[in-house]
Amino acid sequence: MAKSVAFTVNGGDSLYSYSKNSTFQRKAIDAAKELINEAVFERLDTESFSSSAFRVTDLGCSVGPNTFLAVQNIVDALEQKYQSQGHNSQLLELQVFFNDHAFNDFNELFRSLPADRRYYATGVPGSFHSRLFPKDFLHFVYSSYALQCLSKVPEEVADINSPAWNKGRIYYSNSEDQVVKAYEAQYAKDMGCLLNARAQEIVCGGLMAFVVPGRPNGVPHTQVFSNKVVELIGSCLMDMANKGVISEEKLDSFNIPLYMASLDEVEAIVKANGCFSIERMENLTQEQPQANVIASTLRSGMEGMFREHFGDEIVDEFFDSLRKKLEESSSVLKPLTSISLFVLLKRTGN
């Protein structure tokens, strides 16, 4: 049985820490800033909420500084809205809940909290695929570059007796149809669990906004920038297996639990849930980063996963070979569009 997984980024402030290697994710937050502002002003009826405090959470917050930027965008929009309604924004009490897996470096997160923040900060450990908060508690749920992570590798993909066994590959985008379908089904299941949990936790009229790497409607999985990059990871591991650096068995038992959805897929899952109205959905185009930036970004986010599965001794060699392969593949990657999905949902009275 495939076990649950937790994407735990590199904490601290070392060379390959997430805090120093997450500029690509930060650009997605910047791209969504105006959309968040519009969501608060146009879609959020703050005067209908009975609570004296406004409660916000960032799901999959990691260690900063990106989470603080995303939260500040929401806080600024809320304060501006209160002022536009003739209220004193200084009287607005805000509580922000930073959520991630228990293995997340919460010590680093809280050490780097902005000193001039205008909100109360709380850490909430646990998987966002399950319940985290009391009923009717949250007013604004946010997540950036986290919901593409599956709760686990699809069980069929790791089962040697299954037609979806992903032998020799670590991902779905360049694999057999059965593997793709297994990943699609796991994503739909995980998103269904996430929406069911949030439907209980978000007050009626509350909002949920998320930004994730994805793919345009109708574009094949093989033509998605993020997927092509993960395929290069698999190619590097195959090279190391051919050299005897890692065993073939180790390679065959390793799959990356990520899925790049389209807006059509997200829309179908939301409608099946039935507890949210879709307020806005759109693709945000992003500029591709340089090969060395991609390699460092991936190392800051995935190094722990590679160490756990393959051992410490291969990590430097692997990421060095990945950087070189990314540089060699620049002509293949360049024509591909890198996009993020922006999705805004409102909790309905269903």
Rank of each mutant, 00 (worst) to 15 (best):
Q90P: 03
T222W: 04
A164P: 02
L322W: 08
Q148W: 06
L258C: 09
I233T: 01
L150Y: 04
Q83N: 02
F24A: 06
A121D: 06
V343C: 10
N88S: 13
C236R: 00
A102S: 04
Q288K: 12
F210S: 02
Q223M: 11
H101W: 12
A261I: 04
S19N: 14
N350C: 13
E34I: 11
A209T: 03
F54R: 02
I29Y: 08
L341R: 05
E287T: 15
A158C: 06
I170F: 08
Q286H: 15
V75R: 04
F68H: 07
S226F: 14
G86C: 12
R280Y: 14
A2Q: 03
T46P: 08
F342S: 01
D45Q: 15
V332W: 02
K334V: 08
L15S: 13
S329Q: 01
H309W: 05
R111T: 13
F342K: 05
E282L: 15
Y259R: 12
F98S: 07
Q95N: 12
L138H: 00
G192W: 08
T337Q: 15
K135G: 12
D312Y: 11
G218F: 04
F128M: 05
M281C: 13
E287K: 15
Q83M: 07
D136P: 01
S226Q: 13
V153S: 03
T23Q: 14
F318Q: 06
Y18W: 12
L326W: 09
N107A: 14
Y183Q: 07
R118P: 00
M305R: 05
R118D: 04
D58T: 03
K324V: 10
Q95K: 13
A77H: 09
Y259P: 02
K250W: 05
R347G: 01
A28H: 06
F342M: 08
A146N: 05
T46D: 12
S296D: 06
N104G: 06
S144T: 01
T337W: 03
L298C: 07
A70L: 00
P134K: 10
R299W: 01
S253D: 15
N88M: 09
V211L: 14
E249L: 10
A199M: 00
S84G: 06
G12A: 07
S52V: 09
